[in-house]
Design a protein around this nucleic acid. Structure first.
Lengths: 361, 361
DNA sequence: CTGAAAGCGCTAACAC
DNA sequence: GTGTTAGCGCTTTCAG
């Protein structure tokens, strides 16, 4: 591929001039500029980014590391971050770890190798090594949930407590007392320490339930390992096998809710007449499920904006690292309804409920 | 951040030695190596990738450009490609265009600036400029559907014809004659020329229907613009508004099918008793929908492998560009069933069908 | 306005 | 084995 020298020669100017033109500086005489532009076009010149970044000594590059890019939630967040970053004149480089701690370390190193100006880490897994590397590099970074704030490190805490509180209160208000929390772990994680985001959500559930003790709410939890939907389905099966009693279920994430719904359907249970279900993430799917899924929303757009703002204000020295909280909201659809005593179809009686659902729309 | 000089000085060796150690070459004496390693660790040295790539003069980097990374299908394909690439010693750089032709051009230029060794373009949009740039750069590239084979350009053609043939034959065998094809366009695309992948699928449908002329199959098509699920739902509504008659629907993609299902449910129609539905992509969702969605599968794993094989064999000069075909397969679930004459609920009679569905599992 | 030239941090001959 | 050194392609003073 043509280099800046080739262009310079063809246009009969110096490389400095070509550089000026290529970077849109205005100190070049129109005639010269045209010559250079013509040469660039003719040779299909494309500046070598490595040389450019090396010479510039800085990058205008943000990095983003997620656990699973195939998860639509992170896809959406990625879009949002990219957009924000671009608006601020930054590129975004993306990496995905498949929930592997090793891959995380590799990804972080690679990002540092690329001399990212700021790094967002939105993974469920985390290792001490990563923290150390990052701390040492002094690269501004922002975590989701798992961060400890320092001079260069910020943390965006998603308000799981708030979201789950809203979900539980909603179910309690509908009359539910026996609430099942369906939790799943990604495959590769079993032997590692439990993923923080998962324990955070679980803790939030437990904490919230405690607040409703006076209403005599009885929590149950099932866990299962595997990809979301499958694990959700099997978890529900397990819950029945273990004779857990519940009239409502909260899934730790929407893909899990998908499996829960499916498992319930398969069992001949109707939703919400027999069992109410609430998801978590408010993915675009929710609206289109059958029934449409009530879910706790994590506002992706705000998340993206927060991430970029946080990073850039740290980069520009406006702020040290800080802890930000992202609010969550319950989006009510049709998958949860009023508890009718007779609707406990799954507790060993007939597969059909006699209860009439209340329409809450 | 520490440079190779800092490390060299601290370890009392030359930069060449540091470089050798950092690159895992074995021609360094163990004692020296240990000193260097210690220095690297102490300084948290992370080689500057720009300098490295510039010096090396080549990259071991593949590029991938997709239209929408938030689409799970591409998420999965991305994973697959990344994995294949890694196995071959290549990194993968990812870009997303949001269906914008301008962004495509930018992304391609950026990739060339990064001197990718090979580039995969799996977008629905395409422009002449991109083709020209790519052709001129002589960078091995592979397209999905939209490519024209040349020395450095390959094309992977997804066998829509075959997939749609299987879907239509399946429906025809079930007795369906009036088949609705539900097509949607992404928002930003309206005024541009129709996206190739969409017209390919549409053409495939028309072509296939022609083959079933003798069976007196009557095709209908509805189109709608917008994001998949929403557009699918509205398209179905439009179909009814326009008094189109059909007993089965094929959605151009699974997200669209989601909307179709939803629109049908909302109308009080049962699936598959009243209307049979078939999707396209066999996304992970299908299995968990209600009812589980019969869909045409595009094998993502094979696609990823093909992309990387194609690129690398071209890079290594083993092959010129070529045209490969990726087969598709119908995955039968429960959203389509035997046509019973009386099930034409939507044609103005009662909302309930009298037909009993045949269980085809 | 334009050109000459000194790096940016690393690799890879090539000498020792 | 290890060090020396000449680039890699670009940006950016600093002269002119």
């Amino acid at each position: 591929m043509a280099s800046i020298y080739d262009v310079a020669k063809l246009a009969r100017v110096s490389t400095a001039t070509v550089s000026a033109v290529a970077n849109g500086q205005d100190k070049v005489e129109p005639r010269t500029r045209r010559r250079v532009l013509a040469a660039i076009k003719k040779l299909h010149y494309q500046p070598n980014l490595y040389a450019r970044n090396l010479a510039r000594g800085k990058t205008c590059l943000l990095g983003l590391i997620v656990s699973d890019i195939a998860n639509p939630f992170f896809g959406e967040v990625t879009q949002s971050i990219r957009q924000e970053a671009q608006a601020c004149g930054y590129e975004l480089s993306l990496a995905s770890t498949q929930f592997s701690g090793e891959d995380l370390v590799l990804a972080v190193k690679r990002m540092l190798g690329m001399r990212v100006t700021g790094l967002a880490i939105m993974t469920t897994e985390m290792t001490a090594e990563v923290l150390e590397i990052l701390q040492a590099s002094k690269t501004p970074a922002v975590f989701e949930d798992v961060g400890t704030v320092s001079e260069t490190i910020s943390n965006i805490r998603i308000d799981y407590d708030g979201g789950i509180f809203k979900a539980v209160r909603y179910l309690v208000d509908l009359g539910h007392r026996r609430i099942l929390f369906v939790r799943t772990y990604p495959e590769s994680t079993e032997q590692e320490r439990p993923l923080l985001s998962i324990s955070l959500r679980t803790q939030a559930f437990l904490k919230v339930v405690k607040q409703f003790e006076s209403s005599r709410v009885e929590p149950e939890i099932v866990s299962y390992t595997g990809p979301g939907p499958k694990a959700g389905q099997l978890a529900i099966q397990k819950a029945f096998d273990e004779r857990k009693e519940f009239t409502a279920a909260i899934a730790i994430a929407d893909p899990v809710a998908l499996g829960v719904l499916h498992g319930l359907h398969r069992r001949g249970l109707r939703i919400p007449e027999d069992i109410s279900v609430v998801g978590f993430d408010n993915s675009y799917l929710c609206e289109y499920l059958h029934p449409p899924l009530t879910s706790v929303d994590i506002p992706r757009g705000r998340l993206g904006k927060m991430v970029v703002d946080c990073l850039i204000s740290n980069i520009e020295g406006k702020h040290a690292g800080r802890e930000l909280v992202l609010e969550t909201n319950l989006v009510v659809r049709e998958s949860a309804t009023c508890l009718i005593e007779t609707s406990r179809a799954h507790l060993g009686r007939s597969g059909k409920s006699l209860g009439r659902p209340l329409d809450l729309r």
